[in-house]
């Protein structure tokens, strides 16, 4: 890392987030109702976020950089991708297909290599959840590609 302190970057990112909040707050149309309009408190909170970011940056410039553990980039990237794919596929592929694939995939990413056991566990677990939610609690889970 060439950065002296991760909080310096973090602080600036926080300032940016605060600006986004403020932008959202200040573009709220006034409802012309009541004493305090809908934009007031969001603006206050946005300003607080910006201030916290500036504060954080200021503090970090004076502090020694901490030791941050190295990232295990490969499993992290794979896990983030797997979750993103799972959530994206949840409705189009349906609960059962996407969940079984994800359960199995994430187990593998996180280091499990007992392929047969994981396959059995993923199918069994997902089917049990399906029965619990869809059949007993009447939550309408997406059927997706399966003809349910």
């Amino acid at each position: 890392m060439t950065l002296r302190h991760p909080d310096a970057i973090g602080g600036l990112a926080v300032v940016a987030l605060g600006v986004v909040v403020l932008a959202g707050a200040l573009t709220t149309p006034d409802a012309q109702f009541g004493v305090v309009g809908p934009a007031v408190l969001p603006s206050v909170f946005g300003i607080l976020v910006v201030l916290s970011g500036l504060w954080l940056t200021a503090v970090s410039l004076r502090a020694d950089p901490p030791v941050i553990e190295a990232l295990d980039a490969r499993p992290l990237t794979l896990a983030v991708t797997a979750v993103a794919l799972y959530f994206a596929a949840f409705v189009p592929l349906g609960f059962i297909v996407s969940s079984v694939a994800f359960f199995f995939g994430l187990s593998w990413i996180l280091g499990s290599r007992a392929v047969l056991r994981d396959a059995v566990a993923s199918v069994g677990f997902v089917l049990a959840l399906y029965v619990l939610f869809e059949r007993l609690l009447t939550v309408d889970l997406p059927g997706g590609v399966l003809p349910l």
Binding site: G24, T28, P38, P42
Partner: peptide, 24 residues
């Protein structure tokens, strides 16, 4: 402070319950 203020702001995202205006 960041975590709190950002959480408060996130809580206000969406349609204002009082006036129906969209916020953030």
């Amino acid at each position: 402070l960041f975590a709190t203020a950002f959480g408060l702001a996130l809580g206000l995202v969406g349609m204002d319950n009082q006036t129906g205006q969209l916020r953030m």
